[in-house]
């Protein structure tokens, strides 16, 4: 499982509304040094008061990209939402997809950039601004391409193996450190008839 690396960012969201172009340096007082080397940056916020917000040190998150532009990163996030749509998952989780894909070698990066361009083309120029139905059509039209396979495959580990997905879908992860489930409800299901003691003997309680 991954912990979403949400930085304790001081970016004021109101100052960062553009989705295109480079973020001006003065907006990043704390993390300035890291961001200078990046090619793009993704940012967003997690709704306050949600269960997921409790997992993040700050409601605002920012994520630096090493090789992709902000626009390319955003397109990957939106493609991730078409592939695996989850209203329950905040953008921060889909940003992980962009981050994990961004980590590839030069050949992969070129493939991603080409793929993003073809996705935009399939969406008549601008995938990000297309409506949901048009986005789905565009993604379907590139199904089976190496780009599609790379993004879809990465979704499996990026979207479903992190603390926020665990919380959203009700999977607690590691259990040995809590003593397993022997005293924590492994047989607490009450909406079906109980099996006989021959079929399912009482647990040994020492």
């Amino acid at each position: 499982m991954k912990i979403i690396p949400i930085a304790n960012s001081t970016i004021a969201l109101s100052e960062c509304e553009e989705t295109e172009g480079t973020v001006t340096k003065q907006l990043l007082p704390l993390t300035r040094r890291e961001f200078l080397s990046g090619t793009g940056i993704l940012f967003g916020s997690i709704a306050m008061g949600s269960t997921l917000a409790a997992l993040a040190p700050s409601p605002a998150w920012a994520l630096e990209l090493k090789t992709l532009s902000t626009a390319e990163g955003t397109t990957l996030m939106k493609m991730g939402r078409v592939l695996y749509p989850h209203a329950k998952l905040p953008d921060a989780v889909y940003a992980l997809l962009a981050k994990d894909l961004d980590a590839g070698d030069a050949k992969t990066v070129a493939m991603l950039k080409d793929g993003i361009a073809s996705l935009n083309k399939a969406a008549k120029g601008n995938f990000d601004n297309a409506n949901d139905a048009a986005k789905l059509v565009a993604v379907k039209s590139i199904e089976g391409t190496p780009f599609f396979n790379a993004v879809r495959g990465k979704c499996i580990t990026s979207l479903y193996d992190n603390d926020m997905a665990y919380a959203a879908f009700g999977y607690p992860g590691s259990s040995w450190d809590k003593g397993g489930y022997i005293t924590r409800g492994f047989q607490d299901l009450k909406w079906l008839p109980e099996p006989s003691k021959e079929a399912s003997p009482e647990p040994y309680m020492g």
Binding site: Q187, D188, E198
Partner: peptide
């Protein structure tokens, strides 16, 4: 050696199996 205690996943399998009349159903 006694059988293991069945968990929730087993309870579902067991309930369905018994309804269908399967006989050899246990942990």
């Amino acid at each position: 050696i006694p059988g293991l205690p069945g968990n929730n996943n087993f309870k579902v399998l067991h309930a369905g199996a018994k309804k269908l009349g399967y006989k050899e159903v246990h942990t």
